[in-house]
Structures are given as C-alpha cells and as structure tokens.
Write a protein that binds this DNA or RNA. Structure first.
Lengths: 303, 303
DNA sequence: CCACATCCATGCCATCAGGTTATAGACGCA
DNA sequence: TGCGTCTATAACCTGATGGCATGGATGTGG
C-alpha cells in the first residue's frame, strides 16, 4: 500500500491545526482539496482519523496513534533526501551555499576567494533564496550552508555563527512626507503601512515589521513581497515603507527610494547557518565566512 | 520534497533486477512507465541513480547509498500501516483472518466457534485470498492471522504453527488417459502439462509443481490460474493436470475432474501464520486453531 | 429571531500526471 | 547483415486532483 508523503504532511498539519480551513492556508491548497486529501488517506488506511464537527477536525484515538508515528517517517525520508543530495554535491566537489539577497554583501567575493584557496578543486554554488524561504534551502537539504539574516524561522535546528551586525534603516518612497527628514524614530511609523514578507514566514515577518517594538499594536500591511525587486517597486510606488539593513542603501539604491536612519529598533545580524553534523569542507567554508566578515566589524561567536 | 512510496518500491525492484524490462514485469507496469518513474525519482533527488547501458541499469555510487536506506523507510511505513490497521480492528473487536481456499476445511467452523466462546463479543472476519497472495493479506497488514498452505513465500517473516498434514493427490480431467488408473507415480507425470500458479509466486508455484521431485527437469505449463474455479475449469478442459491436497477431492469434487493418489511427492501441510508480536486475542485464535485441527491429525508445533 | 460567520462537504470543470502501445535507437552477437 | 535485447521517445488517453462556487449545519451577536 503506497502513500505520497504529501498526504502525510497534510495530515500532520490538519492534526496540528484541528481545522481544515486554516491547515489549507498553511499548505497553500484550497480547503476542498485538503478535504479530499484527508479522505484519501483515510480510505487508504481503511480507518477514520478525524471526527468532523462544526468545531473542526479532531483526531480519533486511531488518528492520535497514527499521528505519533508519522513525523518519524517524514523525518526519515527528509534525512535520506538530505544525505543523498549532500553526497552528490560532495562527490562533485561542489559546496552548495544558499543566501538571502540582503545577506550577501561586499565581503561575499572575499569569502568565496578564501574558500577557493582553502579547498582547491572545489566549486561554490551560490543560490539566492526568496524571503519566503529564509533558511535559503537548508531545510530542504538543498544547501550545505546558508548565509542569512538572523533570526530566521527554524533557526534552532541549526548551528549558527554570527558574521556581522548592522543598524536597520527605514526605506521609503522619495515622495513620502518623511523623506526629507534626517532621521526618524520608529514610534513615528507605527501607523504607516508597511511592505512585508508573506504571513507564513512568521517570526521572520514579525522581525522586519519590528512587531516587538510596537507595544503590541498591530502593524498595517500595505503590500506583501517576496524578492528585492518586488520590494523596491512596492516601496517606490508608495504602497508602504519598510525596515531594511543599512547596507541596502548601498546595494539597493534606486531612484524613488530614500533610506533614513531610524531609532528605536534593534540592529540586524547576518549569520551563516549549517548542520550540526556538517562535514569538514562545510566547516572550512564557515571558517572563511567568519574570518572575512570579521574583517568588517563582526564578532563571530557561537550562537 | 515529496515522494510516493510507489516510486521507492519501483526503485528497489529496478535496483535488484538491474533491468527495466524485467523489473517492469515484476511490478505489473509497462517498461516505458518504469523508465519515467525512475527518471522522476532521479529528478526529484537531483541525482543520477543508475547508469544506463545496453546491458541494463546499474546503480551509481549515489544510487547504492540511496538503495541502502530506502528499504528501512519502506519497512517503517509498512509497519505503521500494519499497526494502524490492526489497532482499528482491535478497537472494533474484529479479528481479521485470511485463508487460502484450499486451506480451510471441515475444522474451520469449529475453530470459529471455539474462538467465539473464548472471546465473547469478538467477531471473526474471514477473508479468502487468491493464490497470487499466499500470505493471505499478512504481508499487507490486512489480517491478524492467516490459515494457509506451507510453505509460502515470505514464511520466514512470521510465526507459524502447523495444523495438519495430508497427502497430495493428482487432479486430472476425467477424459485423461490416466484417469482410469488406481494410482500413479509422480515420475510418470514429468512430461504432462500442469496447471500452475502465476510465476511471481515463486516458491509457492514451485511447490505445487513439485519442482524438487523432477530431477531438475523443467515442468510444462498448460495454464496459469489464480482461484479454485479457474483451476477446476482449466483441469476439466484438459489444459493440464495439477497436484492438490487430498481434501480437495471432498471440497472440490466436480464432474469432469478425477483425483488420484500419487506417490513420490511430499505431503502438504496447513498452518496458521501470525506476527511475532501478535496480541493476546490473535494468540487465542491460534490456540483455537491448533486445538480444533489437532482433533483431526495434526501435531502442532512451533516452526 | 434573524442575519452572519465559521466549518466541512459536494458538484462541476479544467488540467495534468501517469499509464499504454508502438516505435526508434544503440549495441552485441551469430 | 540481421536479430535479439536493452532503454528512450512519441502519441494518445484516462483518471486523479485541484480550484471555484456553493450547500448544509451550527453557533453568535445585534
């Protein structure tokens, strides 16, 4: 009897949420599709996993037993997947590095150069990730290391070394009423619409909305974007403003966008994340990251 | 990243066979379909698993690594499946028993009755299996115990207790040249066409062709059947003859079919098979089997 | 008491993955 | 050179699956 792991993942989410509609959103499918998936799984097993009611989907006893075992299966598969992919890249002498656009910076070429010297014959495969994937492929086993902004969702599963810390600034349209100012305080911006990452990025989104510095007030969302280009356009078009790393003013300077210093928000950190059991080559790369970012202003330390 | 376990099973078979065409037969799909499945799996992993050549499909290094891990995954899933199904039947107080048509006999009603007395409130769900499924559903977790003919493929994975032993006879069309005889020796039948089980039943098929008693000579196959009815028809129509348990002469008497004693083949045994970790209810059932078949002529002993 | 919000289920339609058959292409072998 | 044995490709078809719109059941607030 065969299953698609997809069904199992859907099952897990539904079990967690206890609610088809919400689960469907998290899984990016429609609610009817999810209804069918769960039904399909129940048919396959010949067992009722949930009791349905207006209140939602509650696990039956059998469903609970099943739910206890499924995560291990999925983890097993994901592990094999990761092992295989990393074995492949090792065989090809390719180090796969994911990075978030805004996390790469002037130091990146130096890091690569240092690594090339350290491991002759190896190639570094840099893969840019969107904001909806803040671990930059680490979670999927697609990369050996990820250079990203901290904190990111799922960070606790990985070893992280901080590479640098920099202030956050505010990005706004040149036409914005505050664009002429020298600097602003974040409190002045509480009621401004913001350009944000997608809701499912959770902690990530919150961090860039500075949810913690709003005294519990809900932010206004003017637009949702997933890549630097979309982000810049949204800001230039006046859909909202956004927090950004200071270095964006250099890397993402663009007509129609103004960057201003802002007080009252924590600075942002760039880090390199990797698996606890990373191989020697990956660790070498991490070492290169620390050394060559340290040249700027980081205090690299284990996190 | 999601897979259908089906792809994994296909992969395992192709890896074992080293040959798409043969693997496709074993999996009951066309060869092009398998080509696509394997390609799909390789795409999914982003890794080449096989090197193709006119000689067939050979695992790459990565493929070998992968192949080492996959069986554990599949076993894990199958285990969960089994657990869940058996938990369901336990909750419903249903004992699921598979049996092979030719393995049930006069004692069966008594067994059920004895069990009903031993476990009031429980129901026995008897499921007849075809010859292409000689474990009668045990392998798929569809039953808690199986009453079947020994030996059967995969028997080593289960606990088995022998219920009875009986001679084998030969079944042939009444019009057959030997039908008038009192008895025959198996050697006289070496060149006769036989009605056999499907090739994929392996050891099972061999046993009922008495492959061991042919001095290595290949049997002639006159027809392939999967159920008693097909089998009886094939014999009556003269497509071939077949070995059968002595009790068939009672249970499957039919105009046009003659059963004759045959010398030179081992007797056949009926056994009840169950999982090593079977629960108390299942063990009770096994106990009932042993007691109530023992009334006939078995010496029940652990196998 | 009724309109509304919230859930899950269902019907209909469009799309696409996946299967099948037939055939091509590569290659060793007689 | 023709044949047998592999795998890959092409063309076609069907069924599974997802999306949208909607229905039915049931609390909830005005």
């Amino acid at each position: 009897m065969d299953v698609d792991t997809r069904l199992l993942r859907s099952f897990v989410v539904v079990a967690e949420e206890g609610n088809l509609t919400r689960a469907a959103q998290r899984l990016f499918v429609s609610q009817p599709a999810l209804t069918k998936q769960i039904k399909q799984l129940e048919n396959l097993l010949g067992v009722q996993l949930f009791t349905r009611s207006r209140a939602g989907m509650a696990l039956t006893d059998l469903g609970t037993t099943f739910a206890r075992q499924v995560p291990a299966l999925l983890a097993g598969w994901d592990g094999v997947l990761r092992d295989t992919k990393s074995a492949a890249s090792r065989a090809a002498k390719v180090l796969r590095v994911g990075f978030l656009a805004s996390a790469a910076n002037e130091a990146t070429p130096e890091i690569i150069a240092a690594f090339a010297e350290r491991r002759p014959g190896w190639r570094v495969d840099m893969r840019q990730a969107t904001w909806s994937n803040p671990s930059a492929g680490l979670d999927d086993g697609d990369v050996d290391a990820a250079i990203t902004r901290l904190p990111f969702p799922g960070q606790e599963n990985w070893h992280v070394r901080v590479l640098l810390t920099e202030p956050r600034v505010i990005a706004l349209a040149t036409t914005h009423r505050l664009a002429g100012r020298d600097r602003v305080d974040f409190r002045e911006l509480w009621d401004e619409p913001f350009v944000a990452a997608a809701p499912e990025t959770g902690r990530w989104r919150d961090y860039w909305l500075a949810a913690d510095e709003r005294d519990g007030r809900q932010p206004r969302i003017g637009a949702v974007t997933d890549t630097p280009d979309e982000w810049l356009s949204a800001i230039a078009n006046g859909y909202g403003i956004a927090l950004a790393p200071e270095s964006s003013a250099r890397f993402y300077a663009r007509p129609g966008i103004t960057y201003l210093p802002v007080s009252g928000v924590e600075p942002t950190r760039v880090g390199v994340a990797f698996a606890a059991d990373a191989n020697a080559v990956t660790r070498d790369f991490v070492e290169c990251c620390v050394r060559n970012s340290g040249a700027l202003d980081a205090e690299g330390h284990q996190s």
